[in-house]
Design a protein around this nucleic acid. Structure first.
Lengths: 227, 227
DNA sequence: GCTATTTTGTACCGCACAGTAAAGATGTGG
DNA sequence: CCACATCTTTACTGTGCGGTACAAAATAGC
């Protein structure tokens, strides 16, 4: 836990965070009692789980095992720490993205993206969602019942779809091997994804093209498209 | 703006919100100076735009044109008001969902869901996203730069995909009529949707089945699936 | 008018938050 | 051993939050 941080007296105040690991030039003054990387990793997990605004400085300092002024000295304010956490996430849990993009064919790229994502999201040790979404989504503890209500609401919509697709199957409108649950979840996934697209600033035309792709490629191609 | 609210002296304290419109029994006391429905509509818009925690009581009272005690007397606390706003949203902007589920075939149900969603999300008069996602997503004004950073991050990921798919097309790996932008946005949509699925508590197996559907139905079926 | 009843306006409460000042602690270089 | 630079600890600040007490205002019934 010692590993004295090096960064010899710098002129620039920022970027003092000392990403370097084993420089031989020790600097004067009391040495840091914590490991920057470990602290940043802990901060990332908290942000990942609770979102930016849902995370208080007390949450952070407790998880990181340091106190407030140390945090500010080492990482800057809360926002700067969050940005560093994003970086950490990109190089850590989300590193499968880079690997996926290096796959040899488009299909394998897509497959690696989707499967890697599920592996990350489905791991019970991880918070439920990608930091890029969860970071802005999860909010304070006071909003917990509201968050639950929203989850219930979204699930309710999905359940309505399931019911409708069950009827469709009974009416010979869906291939029997296609589970109504799976189809409903897939459609719900696209719908919720579109919400994020809108938040990203996607235009109506852009979203429409996503819809066209979704429709054209529906696994229900043997459905009649007319009444 | 008068329309005296009726609700004759009730025994139950809750549900005093008086959804009824034109009952003939006026009640004693000073009449309400605002229209419940209009106020609720305004509250819904604010919640929709800023999310639950991002909305302060001051935001609400200003948008609704009433002051704090009136809000509490009419709608209960912030959480109760939000739940009523959800209801309002379901019967208003999101009413296309019910209509879509009433379409005659599964394909038309899905098409109506997707197109209705885009119509809602793409309308420049509306906040950018569905309330069911946005309600938990958007946070306080202090988090605005962070939200922007997250948007930029997600867009960056999409841009990386576009670059990769451009290369794939150049390598004869993607059909020429398939725009790399569109494919990337579609994949990003599914990925972000999966994040919401995870937040909903979907299991790894369930998400995997969504991925299988997505892969099996990819509009790139004429791609080689092997190296 | 007068009283009962309800809403409105103002001003306030306690609390949690992000961020910081100042003094004590712990190391390095001379 | 001593000055000096850095980190840690404690305690604090100001601000905005959700929620409320209380009195003035406005109506209905008598």
């Amino acid at each position: 836990m010692r590993v004295p941080q090096t960064t010899k007296p710098q002129t620039t105040k920022l970027k003092t965070t000392s990403t370097e690991t084993a420089n031989s030039t020790p600097k004067p003054g009391r040495p840091r009692s914590f490991c920057d990387q470990a602290a940043l990793e802990a901060a990332m997990r908290v942000f990942w789980e609770k979102g930016y605004e849902g995370t208080s400085l007390t949450d952070l300092t407790e998880a990181m095992g340091i106190n407030r002024p140390s945090l500010y000295a080492a990482f800057g304010d809360k926002e700067a720490l969050f940005l560093k956490a994003i970086e950490q996430y990109t190089n850590g849990p989300a590193s499968y993205l880079r690997q996926a993009l290096a796959e040899p064919t488009a299909y394998r790229v897509i497959e690696a993206l989707l499967r890697g994502s599920v592996k990350l999201l489905g791991d019970p040790h991880n918070p439920r969602g990608c930091l890029s979404v969860q970071g802005g989504l999860a909010c304070g503890a006071a909003a917990e019942p509201v968050k639950q209500a929203l989850v219930a609401w979204r699930k309710h919509g999905e359940a309505e779809m399931v019911k409708r697709f069950r009827r469709a199957r009974a009416e010979g409108d869906l291939p029997a091997e296609l589970d109504p649950h799976d189809l409903a979840r897939y459609i719900a996934t696209v719908l919720n994804g579109l919400s994020i697209q809108a938040a990203n600033g996607a235009t109506k035309a852009e979203m429409t093209r996503v819809v066209e792709l979704t429709l054209r490629s529906l696994p229900t191609q043997n459905l009649s498209k007319t009444v």
